[in-house]
Amino acid sequence: MDESRISLTIVPSGGDEGSVLVSDFLKQVDALKKLVGYASRTNTVEARIVGLSMNSPASVEIEAFNASNNAAVPVGAFFHDVYNVVEKAATPINLEREVFDTIKDFASVVGKGVNSTIIVAAGNEIKFDIIAKDRIDGIFGQDYSRHGTADGMLEAVNIHGKINNCALYPLVGPKRISCRFEEHLFKKIKPALGKYVMIEGILKYRWREKFPHAADIHKIDVLPSWDEQPSFEDILGMASNATHGEASEEFVKARRYGW
């Protein structure tokens, strides 16, 4: 069994005489390509079409391969997890939110022009029909909020109609955090525009996401620019007695392994 190959069969609602919209076909192929890309955390996995049938039902065979060396990549374990999501309403802990979103997106075309879709990977037959679609919709957990802080570049302030929105662009984590601020904070928001800041407030998280996607700002502080940061020469020797006379190597070892 070739664990790098995945087949996709799309069954139209009209049976053998039915047809599939190009938009539905492309949406499912694109979603399958994304799923293949999520199959490995260590390699950049791409997908290529190695088989195509235009008869009804339409079918496509895809091979997963390593983009750096063109070698085939086994994806059986990953699609076994996808099978458990679709067929058993499971939520494997190793699957991140983006995988569930893509599975949901893949299933979204079922019910109108598409009667069902079947993915076969490494012996797992994964059937997407109306029942599976409802099952997938039901597994998503609740989004949540908590008090916290986040830092990043502040941009895109919009105060039209007192909407009071802005965007935070962190160096790590999410590409963008959509923020809302109270009217009284505008005097602090305005001079912070285009600068690196620390916000504090209610951070909003989607189910299974590690980083916030939105925030209600209660406090904002402009952080020092890189030019204002101390150099290594500035901090050299500023805590000369930190180890109380013990050699720095022994000091670090004791704290690294002493517990």
Rank of each mutant, 00 (worst) to 15 (best):
S53W: 06
K188P: 00
L171M: 07
R135L: 15
V99Y: 02
V110D: 03
Y205W: 04
R41H: 05
N55P: 00
H160A: 15
N55A: 15
P92D: 09
S68N: 13
Q28K: 07
G14I: 10
L154R: 02
A71I: 00
D16F: 12
P174E: 12
G201M: 07
H244I: 02
I62G: 01
R146K: 15
K210V: 07
K187G: 00
Y144M: 10
N165E: 11
I118L: 13
N70Q: 14
S225M: 03
D101R: 12
K253E: 11
H244C: 05
E233W: 07
A242Q: 10
V120N: 12
H218K: 13
Y196R: 13
F211Y: 13
I163H: 05
T117I: 07
S56N: 11
G141V: 05
I139C: 05
N115T: 08
N66K: 10
Y38L: 04
D134F: 11
R48K: 15
L171Y: 10
K33I: 02
F79S: 01
F186W: 08
A67M: 06
L26A: 11
P191G: 13
K204S: 14
D137H: 05
H80M: 08
G111L: 04
V197M: 06
D30C: 04
L185Q: 08
H218V: 03
R146Q: 13
T149F: 14
S116F: 06
F65R: 03
M153S: 08
G76Y: 05
S13D: 08
